[in-house]
Write a protein that binds this DNA or RNA. Structure first.
Lengths: 298, 298
DNA sequence: CATGATTGTTCAATTAAATGAAAAGTAATT
DNA sequence: AATTACTTTTCATTTAATTGAACAATCATG
């Protein structure tokens, strides 16, 4: 079954002659002649009666032409629809990110992307579990930490710096906190994925492991931040998330010379032959927006 | 633009894998792979995301598939419609014939054709003028006399024998009519297309030309026959047309040893690669029916 | 964990299609 | 009536597509 023969036949009918069809299709007349003849042979009917320098569609030709031309219209429509979609970023883009990346950060990202590309629809999938992008039909992920899947393309966004925070009220009432070992005398608000046993802190000279009592563990950075603001203890949190609370003096840095770990942040997406415009658009905006939020990776 | 690529792509989607599509299409997997890749390159988009031994239709792929599969459906429908039409004679068949071939003969022909092929619709174009079959969209002609267009296929039906007829009543009252020269004493009812000047008559030994007075000329065989039956004169008419009148003794042969000309009769139709079923059916029945009506050609 | 089966991709050899040129036929123009 | 222009068809040469085989990766089975 060769649909290109049908396409040539339909064009011949529309153009009124083999020669005119050849000109319109940019093909030699011998190609037109051969393809129509081949179609007639394959179908076992005469579609065009051709003598006296003129063509006459046979009844079979008319029957075939009516259906075939509609079909070809759809096929061309299919390509036109793709062309239209390609020229501007539009449609649904599905993004996955860690649930605790920070509401303000994600809200800001969505706002900026959709301001620049009004036709884009974003579906954010915030989850702590590993997401298989291809299997789940997710276009792009924001991932922190070490990357697992080497078949994906990764684009660095910087890194998340963790640091110690507490409220001024808490610090007024609490024992002195002048070095990391003093933390064992304080209420430590632990982020469960960070680990239950210890906090690793470092300064320019050294690194220290502070054992944790494990009394307060929450797997939500937002809840831990709120508890810290309420004076319920000392928290180890991403610095970029606490910046607004620092400005309003609800939180202050504790032991500022000592830092938690730094987690790399990447955009990751599947390798594919042709980059969809909406994905390219999203990546461009996300990089511009998020690089300002995270610590520059050295 | 290569629609066969689209067909392969659509089949891959429907089958769920390249390998399954290859089996269903009877093509090697390398052909499937190459054609889909070529389609993606030509369209400039990724239609299928293919990793981990599974396929995922991209959004572009979905967009394209929806339209393309409808289009291909129409194209296959076009072929199916032709297949159905080919298997039984049906539809309109346009036949041209001389206007004066005889109502009974033509009525009989139409009746027999349509009895044997109930789905055939016959349009009879009875005319004296030359009909260009292809230009006028006529499928087949019954032609008498010498053929003009050698590009048509001709199938002999026999020949029309012209002979002298008159009513018994006329002959009772008229002068003796025992040899062709006696005709000048009679009223000769002339069929204009036969010629205005003379009647050519022949027997086994010789041929004679009888000059005509030209007083009664009509270009309708039916009218001449009716006049002869009314006793208005002697007519030179096709024998097959007069057989019923002979049986009822309204007409009798005059000078039976002397005959007019014999006109060959043919079915003629355009040469074409594939004989439409309805034309083949008509020819078969027309030959069977008409050969019994005309004198067998030696 | 090793093996076999299945997937999709790539490449050199084979096969098929496309093409330019020429031919035959017809219509339009001079 | 002769010439020119245009049509469609055919064929040898050129070009492109198809294919079998091999490869790499993954899944299912023992």
């Amino acid at each position: 079954m060769d649909f290109n023969e049908a396409a040539v036949f339909v064009k011949v009918v529309q153009a009124g002659s083999f020669s005119a069809a050849a000109r319109q299709l940019g093909l030699p007349t011998s190609t037109i002649s051969t393809r129509v003849a081949r179609l007639e042979k394959r179908l076992g009917v005469t579609l065009l009666q051709r003598t006296t320098r003129r063509l006459h569609l046979t009844e079979a030709g008319t029957l075939y032409y009516e259906q075939a031309s509609i079909g070809l219209g759809y096929l061309m429509e299919a390509e036109a629809a793709l062309d239209a979609a390609r020229l501007q970023p539009q449609g649904m883009l599905k993004v996955t990110a860690p649930a605790d990346l920070g509401d303000a950060l994600l809200a800001g990202l969505v706002k900026r992307v959709q301001t620049e590309y009004p036709d884009l629809v974003l579906e954010m999938l915030l989850t702590d579990r590993y997401v298989d992008l291809i299997a789940e039909g997710v276009d792009v992920a924001i991932r922190t930490g070490e990357l697992r899947d080497s078949s994906l393309i990764a684009k660095s966004l910087g890194s998340i710096q963790w640091a110690l925070f507490a409220s001024p009220l808490y610090l007024q009432q609490a024992p002195a906190l002048e070095a990391p070992p003093h933390l064992h005398a304080h209420t430590c608000l632990q982020f469960t994925p960070m680990g239950r046993e210890q906090w690793l802190l470092s300064n320019e000279q050294s690194e220290i492991s502070v054992p944790m009592s494990g009394r307060t563990l929450v797997n939500s950075i937002g809840v831990i931040k709120a508890m810290a603001e309420n004076g319920q203890g000392v928290a180890l949190l991403p610095t970029f998330i606490c910046q607004p609370a620092q400005r309003s003096q609800q939180l202050v840095r504790v032991l500022p010379a000592w830092l938690g770990r730094a987690d790399a942040v990447h955009l990751v997406y599947p390798q594919q032959r042709f980059m969809p415009p909406k994905l390219r658009a999203f990546i461009e905006v996300a990089v511009a927006e998020l690089k300002t939020q995270f610590k520059e990776t050295l």
